[in-house]
Design a protein around this nucleic acid. Structure first.
Length: 278
DNA sequence: CACTAATCCTGGACGC
DNA sequence: TGCGTCCAGGATTAGT
C-alpha cells in the first residue's frame, strides 16, 4: 500500500515527464473512486499546463496554469488510496487500458495512467482560490523541522489514546501509515499500547528520529527501485521494505528472539516485541 | 473536544 | 477446481 515514501517516489517519477507540458486530453473510464471524479475536470485541464508537481501528506498535487501563462488555475489532487499507482507511458501507440486503469492524463509525448483495483484513491480539483477541506487540518510533514520532539510531546499531553493510534492521526502528523507506525515504534522501543499522554519527552524525541529514519530510508530505496519509472508495470510505487516487526507475527524479534506479537488497535493490525517495547 | 466504529473496494489467501 | 469467507488497509464520516 502506498505510504508517504511511495507517494514521494511517484511524485519524483512523474515530475520530469510532465512539468511545463500542456495537457492534451483527460480520459475517465471509471469516475467512481473514493469520491467521484468531477465531471468538469476534462474541460478544466485540457489545453492548460502543468506548473508544479508537489506532495502534501499522501496527496499528490499537480498545479495547473491557464494556457501558456503562469497564472495558477487550480490544482489537481490525486490520492493513491491503498492500491493506487501512476505510471508514465511513452510508447506510442498507447496500449489499451486494462481493468482498473481508471483515468489517463494525456500529453503530447506521454500518458500518465492511474491504476487502482480497490478504488480507495481519489482525483479531485481545487480551484486557485480555495483549499480543499481534506487538506485543511493536516498536521506537519514528518520530514520537516516543525515535526520534532517538543511539538509532538506538547500535542500529546492529556491524550489517552494509544500512541500507535495517535501517530497515525493526520492532524498530529501526516504520512505515517499502519506499516511505518509499527516499524517506528519498534525502532524507538515504545509499546504501541502505551497512552500517548504518558510517553516521556525523551521517548518522543526518539520516536520522531525513528519516524524520520524509517521514511528517509524508504524514500531512498524507492528512488533506486523505481529508477526505471516509465517502464514499470502496474506495481509502480511499491518496493521491498525491510520490515523489522510488521507482518512478522510469531517470528523471533531481530533483537531478542522473543516472538513478535500481533494485536488489533483501531481496527488495524499492530506488530511489536513485548520485551523490546515497553 | 476526544475517542471509537463503520465505511468505501477487490485481490489474494485459505478452508472445505 | 471451484466456491464461499475473511482479511488487508487510508482516511473521512458518523456516532457516542
Amino acid at each position: 500500500m502506498p505510504e508517504l515514501p511511495e507517494v514521494e517516489t511517484t511524485r519524483a517519477g512523474i515530475e520530469p515527464h510532465i512539468i511545463g507540458h500542456q495537457i492534451k486530453a483527460f480520459h475517465v473510464r471509471q469516475p467512481q473512486l473514493r469520491w467521484p471524479i468531477p465531471t468538469e475536470l476534462a474541460t478544466l485541464l485540457t489545453g492548460n499546463r502543468v506548473q508544479a508537481v508537489r506532495r502534501r501528506a499522501k496527496y499528490l498535487l499537480i498545479d495547473i496554469a491557464a494556457g501558456k501563462s503562469e497564472d495558477l488555475l487550480g490544482t489537481l489532487i490525486i490520492h493513491l488510496g491503498m492500491s493506487g499507482s501512476l505510471r508514465v507511458i511513452n510508447a506510442k501507440p498507447y496500449p489499451d487500458p486494462k481493468k482498473h486503469e481508471h483515468f489517463d492524463i494525456e500529453f503530447d509525448d506521454c500518458l500518465v495512467r492511474f491504476n487502482d483495483p480497490r478504488r480507495f484513491g481519489a482525483c479531485l480539483w481545487q480551484a486557485a482560490d480555495e483549499v480543499d477541506s481534506r487538506l485543511q487540518h493536516l498536521g506537519p510533514e514528518p520530514l520537516s523541522d516543525t515535526f520534532n520532539g517538543d511539538y509532538i510531546f506538547a500535542k500529546s499531553r492529556g491524550r489517552s489514546s494509544a500512541i500507535k493510534t495517535f501517530i497515525m492521526d493526520q492532524r498530529i502528523v501526516v504520512g505515517v501509515g499502519n506499516i511505518y507506525a509499527s516499524e517506528s515504534l519498534f525502532l524507538a522501543g515504545i509499546n504501541p499500547k502505551k497512552a500517548a499522554g504518558k510517553v516521556s519527552k525523551k521517548k518522543y524525541q526518539e520516536l520522531v528520529s525513528a519516524i524520520k529514519i524509517v521514511l528517509d530510508n524508504a524514500i531512498a530505496q524507492g528512488g533506486t527501485t523505481l529508477r526505471d519509472f516509465t517502464s514499470s508495470d502496474g506495481k509502480a510505487g511499491y518496493f521491498a521494505q525491510e520490515l523489522r516487526v510488521y507482518g512478522r507475527e510469531g517470528l523471533g524479534c531481530i533483537q531478542c528472539q522473543q516472538p513478535i506479537k500481533q494485536i488489533v488497535q483501531g481496527q488495524r493490525s499492530t506488530f511489536y516485541c513485548t520485551k523490546c517495547q515497553r
